[in-house]
Design a protein around this nucleic acid. Structure first.
Length: 265
DNA sequence: ATGCCCATTTGCAATGGA
C-alpha cells in the first residue's frame, strides 16, 4: 500500500498539479494539507473519477486537511481530540483496510511563528494534545501512521542553512524536544529509517519544502518538515520511503512536495 | 549579503504561510 502526504497550498490553485501527480504517482492513500477551503469548496468528481474516496475537514481561507483513498475510508475522525474550543482544521483520521487495517492520521501542525508568542504557545499545546492522541492509538498495538506537514525541522541536516532557523518556531529547542518526545513514544521516522542521513556530497538532501522567495528552489535552499511517523506495527511493514522532489520544479507548484511510503499492508 | 513570492478574501490591501 502506497501512502503519501502532500501539503498542496490551496486546493483550488493546485487542482491541476495535484491531479497530474495523482495520475503518475498513483498512491493508494494520500493525506492532503492546506486545502484553504471549506468542505463545500473541494471538488469530489476529479478524485472519484480516478477511483478515490475523499473525506475532508475544511476551513475557510486557511488550514484544511483531507484523505484520499482507493479503498473505503472507515471510522473518520475530524479535528484533533482534546480541545473542543479549537476550531482550526488541522487533523483527520480514518481506517483503510487492505491486507491489513491501517489507521491513518493526516495532520497539519501549526507553524508557530512568531516565537515566542501566542502562536508558538498554540503550537506547543497542539503538540501536547497530539502526543495524547498518539498514546491512545499506540495502545491499540496496530499499524498506525501519522503523516503530514509537521512544521518541524528535526535536525540541522534537515535544513540547507540551519543557522538561518535557530530562532524560528520550526527549529527552536522546544519544538525539536516535542519531536523527540514523539519518537520516544515508539514512533519511527519513515524516511530516516529507509535513508539514514549521510553527508550531503553523497546525494541530494532530503528536503520537502522550498520557499517561493529568493530563488530557494534553484539554490536548493530547502527544509525537511513533511514527515510520516509509524507505529511499531506499521514500521514492521515499511518497505520504502521517498520524496517526490521533482514536483517542486513544475509549473505553478506548491511550495511543498509529496512524501510517500510503501507498506506491506 | 545574495531574486520579497504565493493564495485567499463577500477583496483590489491585508493576512498567513515558513
Amino acid at each position: 500500500m502506497k501512502i503519501a502526504t502532500f501539503n498542496i497550498n490551496g486546493i483550488k490553485a493546485r487542482l491541476p498539479a495535484l491531479l497530474d501527480w495523482l495520475d503518475e504517482a498513483k498512491p493508494d492513500v494520500a493525506v492532503l494539507q492546506e486545502l484553504k477551503s471549506v468542505d463545500e469548496g473541494v471538488p469530489h468528481e476529479p478524485f472519484e473519477e480516478r477511483g478515490y474516496a475523499i473525506e475532508t475537514h475544511g476551513q475557510k481561507s486557511f488550514n484544511g486537511v483531507a484523505i484520499l483513498s482507493k479503498l473505503p475510508l472507515e471510522d473518520v475522525v475530524r479535528g484533533l481530540p482534546g480541545d473542543e474550543s479549537d476550531e482550526q482544521a488541522r487533523w483527520i483520521e480514518a481506517t483503510v483496510a487492505g491486507e491489513r487495517a491501517v489507521r491513518i492520521c493526516g495532520l497539519y501542525l501549526p507553524n508557530g511563528n512568531p516565537a515566542p508568542g501566542p502562536k508558538y504557545d498554540y503550537k506547543l499545546a497542539w503538540l501536547e494534545r497530539m502526543e495524547a492522541r498518539v498514546k491512545e492509538l499506540l495502545a491499540l498495538e496496530e499499524p498506525v501512521l501519522f503523516a503530514g506537514d509537521y512544521n518541524i525541522i528535526p535536525q540541522p541536516e534537515d535544513a540547507a542553512k540551519p543557522q538561518a532557523w535557530i530562532d524560528d518556531a520550526l527549529f527552536l529547542p522546544e519544538t525539536r524536544k516535542a519531536w523527540r518526545r514523539l519518537l520516544a513514544l515508539g514512533l519511527t521516522d519513515a524516511l530516516r529509517a529507509v535513508h539514514p542521513h549521510r553527508p550531503p556530497a553523497e546525494r541530494l538532501r532530503d528536503f520537502t519544502f522550498w520557499d517561493y522567495q529568493a530563488g530557494a528552489w534553484d539554490r536548493d535552499n530547502g527544509i525537511r518538515i513533511d514527515h510520516l511517523l509509524l507505529s511499531p506495527q506499521a514500521a514492521d511493514l515499511l518497505e520504502d520511503a521517498q520524496i517526490d522532489r521533482a514536483i517542486r520544479g513544475r509549473v505553478k507548484p506548491s511550495d511543498h512536495v509529496p512524501v510517500w511510503i510503501e507498506l506491506a499492508a
